[in-house]
Amino acid sequence: MDNSPHPPLSGRTVVVTGGTRGVGAGIARAFVEAGADVVTCARRLPERPVEGTEFVPVDLRDPDAVRAFFDRLPRVDVLVNNAGGAPYRRLDQAGAEWHARVVELNLVTPLTASLAAYEHLRRTRGSVVMIGSVSGARPSPGTAAYGAAKAGLENLARSMAVEWAPHVRVNTLVVGMVRTELAHLHYGDEEGIAAVSRVVPLGRLAQPSDVGAAAVFLASGAAAYISGASLLVHGGGERPAFLDAATANKET
Results as ranks from 00 to 15, higher is better:
residue 118 Y to F: 13
residue 51 E to H: 06
residue 60 L to R: 15
residue 98 W to A: 15
residue 32 V to G: 03
residue 80 V to Q: 10
residue 45 L to K: 12
residue 68 A to W: 02
residue 55 F to D: 02
residue 69 F to G: 09
residue 84 G to A: 07
residue 16 V to R: 14
residue 57 P to M: 11
residue 121 L to G: 05
residue 24 G to C: 06
residue 18 G to H: 08
residue 103 V to Y: 05
residue 44 R to W: 05
residue 123 R to S: 00
residue 100 A to N: 03
residue 110 P to G: 09
residue 27 I to Y: 08
residue 65 A to K: 13
residue 13 T to N: 10
residue 124 T to C: 06
residue 102 V to D: 10
residue 63 P to H: 12
residue 18 G to A: 01
residue 97 E to L: 13
residue 27 I to T: 03
residue 18 G to V: 02
residue 16 V to G: 02
residue 33 E to L: 02
residue 68 A to P: 01
residue 74 P to E: 15
residue 15 V to E: 13
residue 41 C to T: 15
residue 25 A to Q: 02
residue 78 V to T: 15
residue 59 D to C: 07
residue 53 T to S: 01
residue 53 T to K: 00
residue 30 A to S: 14
residue 70 F to M: 10
residue 76 V to S: 11
residue 27 I to D: 06
residue 122 R to Y: 08
residue 80 V to E: 04
residue 28 A to N: 03
residue 56 V to Q: 14
residue 64 D to M: 12
residue 72 R to H: 12
residue 31 F to L: 04
residue 21 R to F: 02
residue 88 Y to F: 14
residue 72 R to Y: 08
residue 22 G to N: 03
residue 58 V to R: 09
residue 115 L to Q: 13
residue 91 L to G: 01
residue 100 A to T: 11
residue 46 P to V: 04
residue 53 T to C: 02
residue 47 E to H: 12
residue 51 E to R: 06
residue 127 S to W: 02
residue 20 T to R: 05
residue 107 L to D: 00
residue 17 T to E: 01
residue 72 R to Q: 13
residue 85 G to E: 03
residue 128 V to R: 01
residue 107 L to G: 03
residue 75 R to I: 03
residue 20 T to M: 06
residue 104 E to A: 15
residue 86 A to V: 02
residue 94 A to C: 03
residue 52 G to S: 01
residue 119 E to W: 03
residue 31 F to M: 00
residue 35 G to W: 02
residue 124 T to P: 01
residue 51 E to T: 00
residue 76 V to Y: 11
residue 107 L to A: 04
residue 118 Y to E: 14
residue 15 V to M: 12
residue 113 A to N: 09
residue 49 P to F: 00
residue 92 D to T: 15
residue 95 G to W: 07
residue 30 A to P: 07
residue 40 T to S: 03
residue 36 A to Y: 06
residue 85 G to C: 08
residue 127 S to M: 05
residue 76 V to I: 00
residue 28 A to Y: 09
residue 56 V to P: 05
residue 119 E to K: 14
residue 40 T to E: 01
residue 111 L to Q: 06
residue 84 G to I: 04
residue 86 A to E: 09
residue 129 V to R: 14
residue 105 L to G: 06
residue 58 V to S: 01
residue 42 A to Y: 13
residue 121 L to K: 12
residue 60 L to D: 09
residue 116 A to N: 04
residue 118 Y to T: 13
residue 116 A to R: 09
residue 117 A to Y: 09
residue 89 R to L: 12
residue 17 T to L: 07
residue 71 D to H: 09
residue 78 V to G: 12
residue 103 V to N: 10
residue 49 P to V: 07
residue 37 D to Y: 00
residue 111 L to T: 04
residue 118 Y to N: 10
residue 27 I to G: 03
residue 117 A to C: 09
residue 92 D to H: 15
residue 66 V to R: 13
